[in-house]
Computed example of a mutant assay.
Amino acid sequence: MAELFFSPHPDDIALSAFASILRVPPGVPRAVISVFTQSCWEFVFPVDRTRALAVTSRRLEEDLRFARARGASLVHLGFRDTSLRMSPGVEDRRPSATDPLLPAVEAALRDVLENEAPDVVCHVPLGISGHVDHLMVRDAVLALRGGARGVVFYEDLPYCEQYTEGEIEAFVRALGLGLAPHLLDLGAEWPAKVEAMRLYESQLEEKTIPTVERYARRLGAGRGMAERVWKVASR
């Protein structure tokens, strides 16, 4: 059984699914599938699209360092992220079904999954960020798998930190997939997660690591630090 970590952008697995990739048993193949890997986003306005080649190259270098450190293979699918497709601020207001890239993304992910056994485990974003790239990855994998069985939903970070537990639970219920939460203790692994996040220097805002840490402590509820994933509830 292989485990595939579908990352809308380089950095999403380090931010949101680090505990999950750490827990892949030794000898089990694991791969990071980064989908929207062409970018010109550098946290400055106006966006300079002539910087796309330099930014994209740096994203690849960062992603390679992370994948190698975790013993994972890396696939970059080469789709343009929202910095190259739409105006700033639009990316969190467009449903995935209305994005003209969706058929191409679904076809590329179909090619990835065609080479895998039926019992492959797919890790995808929960989509609470509302970012269309996250929603496309989630929705395409669900469509290709025919549902949520064998799919693990990781919470989009740092976005989740701004929501209450009630809001997150309501979002999950609204998906209608019958998902249940599973806490993954980070414990002594937190410094390794910080190191992993820092590998993505070009994508890291000053506030990101403190925000992710606050959320990890919130989930730990005074007993440590954790990440959370959602899976189809056992019956």
Rank of each mutant, 00 (worst) to 15 (best):
H123C: 04
M136D: 01
L126F: 11
D133M: 02
A143G: 15
V152D: 02
L157M: 15
V120C: 10
G147S: 10
L126K: 00
V121L: 06
R145D: 11
G147T: 15
G150T: 11
L113K: 09
V124H: 02
L157H: 00
R149K: 09
A117F: 10
V137I: 06
H134R: 10
L113F: 06
A148V: 09
V124E: 03
E116A: 14
V132Y: 00
H134F: 11
G146R: 13
S129Y: 12
V141W: 00
H131T: 05
D133Y: 06
L142A: 11
V141L: 13
V152I: 07
V152L: 06
V152N: 02
G127N: 13
L157N: 12
G146E: 12
P158M: 14
G146D: 07
V121H: 11
L126P: 05
D156E: 13
V121E: 07
P125I: 05
G130R: 03
V112G: 05
V121P: 08
L113R: 03
E114M: 15
V112Q: 06
Y154C: 08
V141G: 04
V121A: 10
G147P: 14
L126E: 02
E114K: 15
E155D: 08
D133A: 14
D156W: 08
D111A: 15
H131D: 04
I128H: 01
G130E: 03
S129D: 13
P118V: 07
A117N: 13
Y154S: 12
D119Y: 04
L144G: 10
P158W: 07
G150D: 03
V120H: 04
E155Q: 10
A140F: 14
L142P: 09
P118S: 12
G150R: 03
H131E: 11
D139Q: 13
N115T: 14
G130N: 05
H134V: 12
L135R: 01
R149W: 11
F153Y: 00
S129F: 15
H134I: 07
V152F: 11
V121Y: 09
H123V: 14
V141M: 07
N115R: 14
D139M: 12
Y154Q: 02
V112F: 05
D119M: 09
H131K: 15
H134S: 12
L144I: 08
A148S: 04
V137D: 05
L135Q: 03
A117Y: 02
P125C: 07
S129K: 05
G127Y: 08
R138W: 03
G130K: 03
G127C: 10
V141N: 11
C122L: 05
M136K: 00
N115V: 15
N115K: 14
N115S: 14
